[in-house]
Design a protein around this nucleic acid. Structure first.
Length: 859
DNA sequence: ACCTCCCGCCATGCT
DNA sequence: AGCATGGCGGGAGGT
């Protein structure tokens, strides 16, 4: 252990590491001070970076930095760049300047650029390996970094906050963060994507674009629709938006923890990333991003100042993301003019649970993740609820204690982020772990079963999941739909159905297909894509837009401009997702809530509304809580799901470690057991902190959602004066339904063969490779596993746990279902508890489908 | 003149 | 009270 650290840390860290950046300047002082104090602990990693390969020398660093910098800057700076980079330290600069500057240039002084957050971030990133060896201590001392980089701490916060939003770092304690590098990145992005889908960001983007273009005329319609969507989003989705998305693996404090966190740069960063992941062109203009991010509350009347502030923040975030090579600056030329925008240059990711991302993380290493997951669960639970009133089984308690010990490391930090009661959390956490273990065990079993038949797995899983069942019953078309439905269910996004993503989420393979989907394919934006669903007439209309595709970047914009087609379709789509089902749902919810869970579910499906209302949600929650309490300590479904997810992950990871499962298997399996649950859990987690409501979303099946929105939309429309809606409302609803249905169908058609396997595996493969690289540096998987005593211990512990858990069985089942039901997980979990849900679900869906069909017919 | 966004005041929260 | 965080927006550098 120590040896490893030494290997990793010693060489570069103290000496080299610091040297590179600062050498020229004052570093000595810093080094001296820092090293002694933190020595091994703080400094941890850094030099390792793989990419560089070169030993750390100032020049090397400079080169890296320069290269890293955007081309433009690069070119310019390169000339002076050397100076600048070195200059990182003022003193050095001064010296240089004096020497050189005598002549002309004194630029060497830190120009603004030199102080840019992007450059700073590069420096920061240069200190740590992309794929750190978990075994080594990767602690980051903010003070130290600030000194070394010679910047105010405030700047470091900016960087760290963004990194944290990607789970590339996690906070250990007061001034300390742990560097995770990109191990979790894919997973995180997957989660963010799924959340983004949930939030209907794609739709929102489309709406905004539409507005812009349409404002001139149809805007009325669009507005009405948009408004609805937005509002809906705000209401329901807004919640999720507000929350910080916690990844299963990553530990962090819930957004709820800090009041600020809601607004936090972290959240903005996540949302911003979501926009990229969700939007088809993957190009997001700052304007749109700002509108959406702000807009959640009141899109339409944005304060100018607010808008400006948002833009400022987005620049900050964008700089960091650019440094991570996740995005690059571009300009989108639209009718109106040229807008600053950013293009996603990061990895393509399938929705969270879907294959690759999750898999990768697990495989490589993510001990921390596991830990964090546990912690997260605990945290979430606690955070959400003031206190855990869980009744715990002794066994659970034991588990908890063990876990706590593990956690301790993390939490040990004096001020662990989570402020809530650590003790409590830890205690609470205990149950989860056990649960998780159980879940994991279950998942494993499922996975194994499924693994045997990857392709079939999905279906099987679906079938297993209570939710799935419901789906199947729904229609004859069901088979195809099953897949569809499943995905929809899986993703809270369900709403999303409009977009392919949901499907993809359901089945990893699907996603890729969807996008590729012949019909829409092209550059259409999400909205268009959605419209696409109604391939028939619409697609042609859409086609024009595609023509725009000539310019890829423009496509998106152009597309938006065209909006043409299907306002209705779009609107429908938008409505679906966003739909939040406000009033109607609530009503329905009320009725339903009282009803038995099973009934509820059915009703929900029926009404579709269920998902929407917060009230319902709460009610449901209450009911669930009761149930849950009885079932197991943790009251909330969400946590459980998370746990389940975690468990699944852990399982997966373990498998990976063992090598029993092939990547493919993992993928598939993950979707079934782990994946779905995970995503759901993640989603839930996100939503959870801020609002109970979120769960509602989960609860609702996508189809149901779609249906609901429709209903809602009219209502909403009524509230708003929306002329269009009157005529269109029905249509819209139908269209929406269609969208949801269609998309699935489409996918189905295309997917049938390919659906399951092909794509996802590829992705995984891709992802895996990188990771493998990363690992190599640090010390690959084996190293990871071993290194962290903690993480390792955790895993091991977890595995055993499953067995031990006594009460676990019940829990397990619950969890199980969760995962399965899970597609949508969280809600599902709740539903599961209800028990009846499964059957109920089936019933509800049926009606929807019928509706959908009708809608289709209409088309 | 607009785009970027650095800088640091000061609120917020925890210790 | 003191310190760590980080929201926020003025206003300056860049183009």
């Amino acid at each position: 252990f120590l040896n490893q650290e030494n290997l990793f840390c010693e060489p570069h860290k103290k000496v080299l590491m610091k040297t590179p950046l600062k050498e020229s300047t004052t570093p000595n002082i810093v080094l001296a001070e820092i090293q002694p104090d933190f020595g091994p602990l703080t400094t941890p990693t850094k030099p390792k970076e793989i990419s560089q390969g070169e030993p750390w020398t100032p020049t090397a660093n400079l080169k890296m930095l320069i290269s890293a910098v955007s081309p433009e800057i690069r070119n310019r700076d390169q000339k002076r760049g050397l100076f600048d980079n070195r200059s990182g330290l003022p003193e050095a600069k001064d010296c240089l300047q004096e020497h050189f500057s005598g002549d002309e240039y004194e630029k060497s002084q830190p120009s603004r650029k030199e102080k840019s957050l992007g450059l700073l971030c590069h420096k920061f990133l240069a200190r740590y390996p992309n794929y750190p060896n978990p075994a080594v201590n990767n602690d980051i001392c903010l003070d130290e970094v600030a000194e070394e980089l010679n910047v105010e701490r405030r700047r470091i916060y900016d960087i760290v906050n963004v990194l944290e939003s990607l789970h590339m770092v996690s906070r250990l304690a007061k001034n300390r963060y742990t560097w995770h590098g990109r191990h979790n990145l894919n997973k995180t992005l997957g989660t963010l994507k799924s959340v983004g889908e949930e939030n209907k960001y794609a739709e929102q983007i489309m709406m905004i674009k539409k507005k812009e273009y349409e404002q001139e005329f149809d805007f009325i319609k669009s507005y009405s629709i948009e408004d609805h969507i937005i509002k809906s989003n705000t209401g329901q989705d807004g919640q999720p938006d507000v929350c910080f998305v916690e990844l299963p693996g990553v530990e962090f404090r819930a957004a709820s923890v800090n009041s600020r966190k809601d607004k936090s740069l972290r959240v903005m960063s996540q949302k911003f990333v979501m926009l990229f992941l969700v939007s088809t062109p993957q190009i997001v203009s700052l304007e749109i991003a700002a509108k959406i991010l702000i807009g959640e509350d009141h899109v339409e009347d944005l304060d100018k100042s607010k808008f400006k502030t948002k833009i400022r923040r987005l620049y900050d975030i964008a700089n960091v993301l650019s440094s991570l090579d996740l995005i690059k600056k571009v300009h989108v030329t639209e009718e109106r003019g040229r807008k600053p925008a950013f293009k996603w240059t990061g990895p393509e990711i399938s929705p969270n649970h879907s294959g690759p991302s999750p898999v990768i993380p697990f495989a490589p290493s993510d001990l921390e993740v596991r830990r964090s997951s546990k912690e997260n669960c605990a945290k979430n639970l606690f955070s959400t609820r003031g206190k855990p009133n869980f009744t715990r089984h002794p066994s659970l308690i034991k588990l908890v204690k063990s876990i706590e010990s593990d956690r301790r490391k993390i939490n040990s930090a004096p001020s662990s982020p989570v402020k809530t009661n650590k003790a409590e959390s830890s205690q609470n956490s205990a149950p989860f772990p056990s649960k998780m273990a159980q879940l994991a065990a279950i998942c494993k079993m499922q996975l194994e079963e499924q693994s045997s038949e990857p392709t079939k797995k999905v279906k099987v899983q679906l079938a297993r999941s209570g939710y799935c069942k419901p789906v199947a019953p729904l229609d004859t078309s069901a088979n195809a739909e099953l897949e569809l439905t499943a995905p929809s269910l899986i993703q809270p996004l369900g709403v999303v159905p409009l977009i392919p993503s949901p499907l993809s989420s359901a089945v990893p393979v699907i996603l890729p297909q969807v996008p590729t989907g012949p019909s829409y394919a092209i550059y259409l934006q999400p909205a268009q894509a959605q419209t696409m669903t109604p391939p028939q007439g619409l697609s042609p209309t859409m086609c024009p837009t595609p023509s725009s595709k000539a310019t890829a970047s423009k496509d998106s914009t152009d597309v938006t401009t065209e909006k043409l087609t299907n306002d209705a379709a779009k609107s429908s789509a938008s409505t679906k997702p966003g739909s939040l089902l406000p009033a109607p749902e609530r009503q329905a919810a009320k009725n339903r809530d009282r009803e038995p869970a099973g009934e509820r579910g059915s009703k929900r499906a029926h009404t579709l509304e269920d998902s929407g209302s917060k009230k319902k949600f709460k009610e449901d929650v209450k009911g669930l809580e009761n149930v849950s309490t009885t079932l197991f300590p943790s009251g909330y479904l969400i946590p459980l799901t998370q746990c389940s997810a975690l468990g699944a992950e852990s399982v997966l990871s373990s498998k990976e470690n063992s090598g029993t499962l092939s990547p493919n298997h993992r993928i598939y399996s993950s979707p079934i057991a782990g994946v779905i649950p995970v995503t759901s859990s993640e989603l839930t987690a996100v939503n959870f902190p801020s609002f109970h409501v979120t769960p509602l979303k989960l609860m609702v099946s996508p189809t149901s959602v779609a249906a609901v929105p429709v209903g809602n939309s009219p209502a909403l429309a009524s509230s708003h004066p929306v002329p269009i809606q009157n005529p269109s409302s029905a249509i819209v609803n139908f269209t929406l339904q269609h969208l949801g249905l269609i998309s699935p169908n489409v996918q189905v058609a295309s997917s049938p063969g390919p659906v399951t396997v092909p794509v996802s595996p590829r992705i995984e493969a891709v992802n895996v490779l990188p990771e493998s690289r990363a690992t190599r540096y640090d010390s690959p998987v084996s190293g990871q596993n071993q290194p962290n005593g903690q993480s390792v211990a955790m895993t091991e512990a977890q595995e055993p746990v499953p067995v031990t858990p006594k009460g676990s069985q019940l829990v397990a089942e619950n969890f199980f279902r969760t995962p399965g039901g899970p597609t949508k997980p969280i809600g599902s979990s709740c539903m599961d508890f209800d028990g009846a849900n499964q059957t109920s679900l089936g019933t509800p869906f049926v009606p929807q489908r019928k509706l959908e069909v009708s809608a289709e017919d209409v088309h």
